[in-house]
């Protein structure tokens, strides 16, 4: 009786573990099947490097380079904003803040992660876009920069908590050595602690990028949604994700337009896959240091 029970539990656990892998594979196969169908009609390079995205004009053009560049611009802007802020916040929490408020700050930052992205999108439309419009004298504040700023806030919790973890796991003896040489607290932090935490910081950047590239709702709302080649952060752009979200409803099932959206899905899948691999490599190195500490 007991053996039967154990047998069932064991198999159930195995099945749920296997299921998650099977689902990923199924999704990928589905994505491939629908996405690759596009390349019967459209040249692969014309798709990847074409500069015009006119999926419903006649003849249609399926160049996603403007969308890729849209994602790149928004992501780049977001990371440029989020990494220095995140690094500063992580240093403050782990090295400067008094013990009593450390936990408080950490939960505050985790709370930021709990804000639904649509709410951030709203705030972006109502406060940020008009603000940018006035500062830069633009026709509309709905630009790549607006998207970058909102996404920076979304990526911040991930970035802060991973960097903080990396800093805390730097062996104390490094910092002691630096202080004993007459370095000030700050010198010890930026000359020794930060370089020692470099892998963790890189992992944080990678995961931050992953978070930003994959985000859809907020960018759909506040980047202006113009599928044109961007030349500055102050232009409206449209990202890969926003394109899929915006056009999936209107694309006729089985049409080239429909397949092209799946092909975009494949591109996104590959991008996140690569980012995750890098994040993994850096996290491993960071963990190796943590082990050395013990």
């Amino acid at each position: 009786m007991k053996n039967l029970f154990e047998f069932i539990v064991e198999k159930a656990i195995f099945l749920s573990g296997a299921a998650s892998i099977i689902f990923v594979v199924l999704i990928f196969i589905f994505l491939l099947k629908e996405g690759l169908a596009l390349f019967g009609e459209v040249n692969f390079f014309a798709f990847l490097f074409g500069q015009n995205w006119y999926p419903i004009s006649d003849p249609p053009q399926f160049g996603i380079l403007p969308l890729i560049m849209g994602s790149v611009f928004v992501t780049f802007g977001a990371i440029v904003i989020a990494v220095p802020l995140g690094l500063a916040a992580a240093i403050y929490i782990s090295e400067v803040a008094p013990h009593s408020i450390r936990g408080f700050l950490k939960s505050g930052i985790e709370l930021l992660a709990a804000i639904p992205s649509i709410v951030l999108g709203f705030i972006g439309i109502i406060f940020l876009a008009p603000l940018l419009k006035n500062i830069f004298h633009l026709g509309s504040g709905l630009t790549a920069l607006a998207g970058s700023i909102m996404l920076a806030f979304m990526a911040l919790p991930t970035i802060v908590s991973i960097i903080e973890d990396a800093i805390v796991s730097v062996p104390r003896s490094y910092k002691e050595g630096a202080l004993a040489l007459g370095a000030t607290h700050w010198q010890a932090i930026y000359r020794v602690t930060i370089p020692a935490a470099a892998s963790g910081i890189l992992a944080a950047v990678m995961l931050g990028i992953g978070r930003v590239v994959g985000e859809t709702m907020a960018v759909l709302m506040i980047t202006g949604n113009a599928a044109i080649m961007p030349t500055s952060l102050l232009q409206p752009v449209r990202t890969l994700t926003a394109t899929v979200a915006a056009e999936m409803g209107e694309a006729v099932s089985g049409s080239s337009h429909y397949y092209s959206l799946f092909a975009i899905g494949i591109v996104l899948f590959i991008i996140s896959f690569i980012i995750n691999i890098f994040a993994d490599i850096f996290l491993h190195r960071s963990k190796a240091m943590k082990r050395r500490k013990k």
Binding site: S173, A178, A180, G182, P195, M289
Partner: peptide
């Protein structure tokens, strides 16, 4: 001035602790 003091009085630790540089 602790910076000056520690420049004048250096310390070698029990476990070698070179920086990871």
């Amino acid at each position: 001035d602790l910076v000056k003091l520690r420049k004048k009085v250096g310390m070698v630790f029990q476990r070698p602790n070179p920086f990871p540089l």
